[in-house]
Design a protein around this nucleic acid. Structure first.
Lengths: 126, 126
DNA sequence: TTATGATATATCGAAACTCGATATATACAA
DNA sequence: TTGTATATATCGAGTTTCGATATATCATAA
């Protein structure tokens, strides 16, 4: 299990939303699935983050009432809060990715040669 | 100026020490120079980090008295605290780099294709 | 019917981290 | 003697982290 800092979480969530609107729980499952379980963004990390993104105007939101197939039409079903990447969000993501790549590039300069013998192509020794 | 989180700072400092022993101030200058000023690890970030590394046994330390060339032999000069990467520290660094590369690899999977038209080789649009 | 797990959103709070400001002291050059 | 560089270190207000907790619906099987 790899730890995701908020910075990385934001990058991943925005990237997921760049593919189309989604909601907290689905994003969480999506991240776990697409990382083979290596990344896990739990509720306590997800919702404050989504709230922050909304507050900063990077996403727009809307509620969906999820009715059960055979349920009472009068009853309130589960509620889903959908998040859609805004234009501002897309621009932010683009900059964020540029910054991420720049960081990696410089970081690699430091890391390079600090590991002794290992395959530089894969980054894994075992 | 790119922000370095403690995780990254630790990786960079350990990588610097993998090249040979150094001390706080020199490491700080080294990092600024080798990153063309993009990374800056200031005293308030550096010393707590080095103390933590020492506490965890990743580095060993020793003090050096830095005498001025023409100074009174009796006077106390400046004091330098040298940090040397321990075997445990080298093993930790190796694992840390593997983890870093694994993280990047998965992160790239999410980021890939979230930027629209741009050169995937360099990661920079402008 | 009941209980177990999945779906779904959200906050709390203790611990850890961040980073500019601050403190202290020596060395050296203008 | 004044300013800048060298050198280590802590303080503290603000932010981040993340397991625990709370609430409620839905689906399935015992």
């Amino acid at each position: 299990m790899l730890k995701l800092k908020q910075d990385h979480s934001e990058l991943v969530v925005l990237s997921v939303l760049a593919a189309g609107p989604s909601y907290g729980y689905a994003i969480s499952k999506d991240i776990a699935a697409r990382s083979d379980g290596h990344f896990k963004l739990t509720a306590s990390g997800m919702y404050p983050l989504l709230t922050k993104l909304e507050k900063n105007g990077l996403v727009t939101t809307s509620w969906e009432e999820v009715k059960a197939s055979g349920s009472d039409p009068e009853s309130n079903g589960r509620r889903r809060k959908w998040y859609t990447l805004s234009d501002k969000g897309q621009r932010h993501l683009t900059k964020r990715i540029e910054l991420h790549r720049q960081l990696q590039s410089i970081l690699d300069g430091f890391v390079h040669g600090s590991m002794g013998e290992q395959d530089p192509q894969t980054g894994f020794a075992g």
